[in-house]
Write a protein that binds this DNA or RNA. Structure first.
Lengths: 110, 110
DNA sequence: CTCTTGGTTCGACTTTTTTGGAACAAGCCC
DNA sequence: GGGCTTGTTCCAAAAAAGTCGAACCAAGAG
C-alpha cells in the first residue's frame, strides 16, 4: 500500500519539469537532495509547515523529478537523475549548476 | 524611444528563466525562434490574439531569454543564446533538445 | 489499545498567471 | 491628413498556483 506512484518520464512534458523546477522553494529542495543523494522528507525546508512541504514534494514527484521510497512512516526522497538525463539530456545538471544573482539590493536607479 | 529594455542576465534568477520556458506556448515560440535565428513578432503563434502574444513575448524578454530589435513598427525577436549559455550553461540547449511525449492518448489502462 | 511521530489530504483563501477585448501609439504610404 | 499595419498598454475576468490550518492515516513504542 505504501507505494508511491511516479510518472514514466516518457509521459512528462518538458514544460512540466521546468514548471516544477521554476519555484525557488522547490529548486532549493532539489539542490539539497542533489548533494546528499537521498533525504528524509521532513529534513527539507523545515521552516515551512508540513502541508506546504508535502505539496511541493508532490509537484516534484508528479513532474518526474523525484523518487520516493517509503520506509515505515517516513519518505525518503531522491532525484531520478539517470532517467531524467536520459529523457532530458543535460537539463538537470544545467539547472543545478546555475548560479543565483547575488542577492541584488533594490538597485535604486543606478 | 523605440528601444526595448532587457535585463542583464546576472540579475535574472534561474527560476525566472525556467518559469518563462515552462509554458507550452512560450516554449513553442522559443523553438520557432531557435531555428530561424530571428522572427518578426507577428509571425509567431499567429492563432492567438495579439495581446496574448505580446504578453508572452514580454515574459520571455523580461526573463532575459529573448532580444528584441525594433524596425519600423515591427519587432524582430531573437534568442540571447551566447549570454544565456554563459550564465546558465547548457540550459537552453537542453530545453530545446527535449523531446515531447508523443501526444499520448488518454492512455486508458494499457 | 493509546500515544506519538512523519506525512498526506481536505478545504479555504491569497496571489500569480493567463487570456483577450478595446483603446492607443508609431511608422508607412498615398 | 487619412487609412492601414504592427504591436503595446489597460483593464477585467478566469484559471492556476501557492500557502497553510486542521483533520486524518499508518507505523512504531509502550
Amino acid at each position: 500500500m505504501g507505494e508511491v506512484t511516479e510518472p514514466a518520464l516518457a509521459d512528462v512534458p518538458v514544460t512540466a519539469v521546468l514548471q516544477a523546477l521554476a519555484d525557488p522553494t522547490r529548486l532549493r529542495m532539489v539542490r539539497t537532495i542533489a548533494d546528499g543523494g537521498e533525504r528524509l522528507c521532513g529534513m527539507l525546508e523545515e521552516q515551512l509547515p508540513k502541508a506546504t512541504r508535502s505539496h511541493h514534494l508532490k509537484v516534484l514527484r508528479e513532474a518526474g523529478v523525484t523518487h520516493t521510497r517509503v520506509v515505515g512512516t517516513g519518505r525518503y526522497v531522491s532525484l531520478r537523475r539517470e532517467e531524467l538525463d536520459r529523457h532530458f539530456p543535460g537539463l538537470l545538471p544545467a539547472v543545478l549548476t546555475a548560479a543565483e544573482p547575488a542577492a541584488a539590493e533594490k538597485r535604486a536607479a543606478v
